[in-house]
Write a protein that binds this DNA or RNA. Structure first.
Lengths: 138, 138
DNA sequence: GCCATTTATAAGAATGATTACGATTTACAT
DNA sequence: ATGTAAATCGTAATCATTCTTATAAATGGC
């Protein structure tokens, strides 16, 4: 996923292009890590001093729904990162301090038989948490 | 985990026995599924009309710290269930409607090499979500 | 059993993240 | 250029959770 693809999806789905939306996607494209709504708000308000929290949350949710962003949650806050460009399903190793990630190629669902006719599986979550090199160095 | 073990741990760690705490553990022992703080509050207030939300949250957190309860989160609410009696590490298949679970015996961390000297792994989460038979029948 | 100490609880206020709302502005198709 | 639907602002509301302070209850030693 990159900025132009994201803006194309936005257009295709009938949503409007705004500079704020472009800046928001650009931020995620630059950072390539999980950011909280608060992180995004602070960053965006540098360029747009009066920007509403509502706009941040609305757009984060929109981008998640459009699968431009991936969502997770830790320490009581939702976090978002740009969807990975790799098309195949994968999981992440996540630094809980800075939000940087590394891909985990395999998925436990591939080889673990889970669920049956009784229990209808609709989703799963596999995340490995830790601390990245940079954060440990601090 | 069962009620008497839980109360023994409580005593051993120097915490006091109260009827509310016994009732709380008993609830989880009966239900054997994930309950939200709200679920617990509603149940407990039947027996103790003026019971404070703070007491619920304090005890849920205490029991989690004592590893009497396991914690997870979905739809913006923390959820708790009695720790499984099996001693070995495992994961769950979870019905997001009623909180009932089924154990998944294997753990993806066993066979997936993840992390390295750079990235220090501190934890992981593997949960499979879906809808149980009873909830589908509704 | 009685008292002292320590912990638990109640009641309500405070916090922090997120969502909702009415008014205004903007993007964009025609 | 104009009309319309969508986006945004500013602020209030909501929801889960935590904090605070005063009171009450549980435990251990006498």
């Amino acid at each position: 996923m990159n900025v132009s693809t994201a803006l194309r999806i936005l257009k295709e789905e009938g949503f409007k292009y705004t500079e704020k939306r472009e800046d928001l996607v650009t931020l995620f494209a630059k950072e390539k890590r999980y950011l909280s709504a608060r992180d995004v708000l602070i960053y965006m308000q540098k360029s747009y001093p009066g920007m509403s929290v509502d706009t941040i949350y609305r757009n984060l949710t929109l981008f998640k729904d459009l699968e431009i962003l991936e969502e997770t949650e830790w320490n009581g806050e939702k976090r978002y990162r740009l969807s990975c460009s790799t098309n195949h399903h994968h999981h992440h190793l996540i630094c809980l301090q800075c939000g940087r990630t590394r891909q985990i190629e395999s998925c436990p669902m591939e080889d673990i038989p889970v669920g049956d006719s009784e229990f209808k599986v609709t989703g799963h979550k596999f995340e490995v948490y830790g601390r990245c090199g940079e954060c440990q160095a601090q």
